[in-house]
Design a protein around this nucleic acid. Structure first.
Lengths: 206, 206
DNA sequence: GTCTATATTAGGATAGAC
DNA sequence: GTCTATCCTAATATAGAC
C-alpha cells in the first residue's frame, strides 16, 4: 500500500555507481515484491501461490520466473527488503538523538509504525521463517542482527542494577511485535501512543 | 510429545454419564489430534497435508476422513482442544488463590507453561486463524473469551489511577505470547522465571 | 518481458471393497 | 476402521513462440 512510496534506497554511502543491487529488474520487480509481500502476509508462505501473485500483478504465472527463479527466492527477496526497510526506518528515527530513553522510544515508535502502518514487508519479516526454506539460516541471522539494535539501545539505559536487561528487551520487543495481532487501524490507538504507554508502564511503579 | 499424557479430561463436574463430547471416536481420534496439532504447528495450516498427518498416524489419507469430515474440521477440532486445555490449566492454577497479584502471576505461569512446554495445541491456538476457514468466527470468539480472563485478573489489581489497564493487559499478554518465538527448552530460563521477571519489571520503577 | 502450453507433482476428497 | 483406487483440482516450474 503506502509502503510503496518508501522504496527508494538511501544507504549510508549511496554514491553514483551501483543503484542496481535492489533495482535489478526495475519497476516490475518492485511491483512483484509488493504484491508478494501482501500475499505472504495474508496467506502465509505455504498458502500463497505464484499464480495468485502473478494474477494480481497482471501477468501469468510463468512470467514470474523471468524475475525470480523460484518461490523460495521470491520470499527471500521480500524478507530481505522488509529488513532493509525497517532497519532504515530505525536509522532515521535515531538520527541526531542522544538521550538514551528518547532513543529507545524513538526506535520503538519507528519499529511499531513500520509494523502496524508501514505495510506488508515488515509483517512478513516478523513471522516464523518456514523450516524448509533454503535461505532460512541467512534470514534468521538478518533478523537477529536487526534485533541486536535494541540490545544496544537498552544497554545504554541508566537502569537500577537489579534490572535484567535481557528480560527487558524480550518483554518490550514481544509486546511491540504482538501488537500486530490486535491493532486495528480504525481504533483510537496509534503506534506512537502504544509505544508511549508501554514505556510508561515500565518506568512507573505499579 | 509430553502433551499426550495430559489428555484425560478433568472438567469441574466430570460425572459418569457423558465422557463422549471430547471422546467421540476414542483413542484413535485423540492420536490424530495430537499428530495434527504437531503438523499444524510446524508447517502452518496451508502447508500441513492430510497425507502427512495420516502417514505419521500410521494410516492412509483416506482413512482420516472416517474420523474428521474435512481438513477444516480437523483444524477446528485441534483449535478447540487447545483452548480447552489452556483454559483448564489456568483454572487449576487459580484454584484457591485470592491475592490479586498472586492470581495474575499464577495465571501467567500457567499460560506460559502451557505455551512453552505443554506441546503443540496451545501454539496452534495462538497463531492467526486462516482467513478462509469456515469456523473462523467461532474460533476467534473462543480465543477472545479466553483472553477475557486476563482482563478480569487485571481489573482486580490494586493499581494507581493513572495506569491504563488495557495497555497493561496488551503488553503483558503480548510479551508472554511472543516468548514462543525465542524460548529454547535447553536455555537457563523457565516459564516460571519468565513470568516472574516480566512482572517484576512492571512492578518496580525503571 | 510476456504468453501459450505443458510436464510433473501433490493436494483434498470420495466410493466401495474388506 | 482401514485400504485401494481414483477423481479433480491446483501447485511449482519449464520450454519455446512472439
Amino acid at each position: 500500500m503506502a509502503a510503496a512510496t518508501k522504496t527508494a534506497a538511501r544507504k549510508t554511502s549511496a554514491a553514483a555507481p551501483a543503484p542496481r543491487a535492489v533495482n535489478k529488474h526495475g519497476a516490475r520487480r518492485r511491483q512483484i515484491l509488493e504484491v508478494a509481500a501482501a500475499r505472504f502476509r495474508s496467506h502465509g508462505y505455504g498458502a500463497a501461490s505464484m499464480r495468485d501473485i502473478a494474477g494480481e500483478v497482471g501477468i501469468l504465472a510463468g512470467s514470474l520466473y523471468h524475475h525470480f527463479p523460484s518461490k523460495d527466492d521470491l520470499f527471500t527477496a521480500v524478507h530481505e527488503e522488509g529488513i532493509r526497510r525497517i532497519d532504515e526506518a530505525v536509522d532515521t528515527a535515531l538520527d541526531g538523538r542522544t538521550d538514551p530513553w528518547a532513543r529507545l522510544e524513538a526506535a520503538m515508535v519507528a519499529h511499531l509504525d513500520y509494523l502496524l502502518e508501514g505495510g506488508d514487508f515488515a509483517v512478513v519479516v516478523l513471522r516464523a521463517v518456514p523450516a524448509d526454506l533454503g535461505s532460512r539460516q541467512r534470514l534468521v541471522a538478518l533478523r537477529d542482527a536487526y534485533e541486536a539494535r535494541f540490545r544496544e539501545l537498552i544497554e545504554d539505559l541508566p537502569l537500577p542494577a537489579t534490572v535484567g536487561r535481557d528480560s527487558l528487551r524480550l518483554m518490550l520487543l514481544g509486546a511491540l511485535n504482538w501488537s500486530q495481532t490486535w491493532y486495528r487501524r480504525d481504533g483510537d490507538t496509534t503506534p506512537e501512543g502504544i509505544a508511549r504507554d508501554f514505556l510508561a508502564l515500565l518506568r512507573a511503579p505499579l
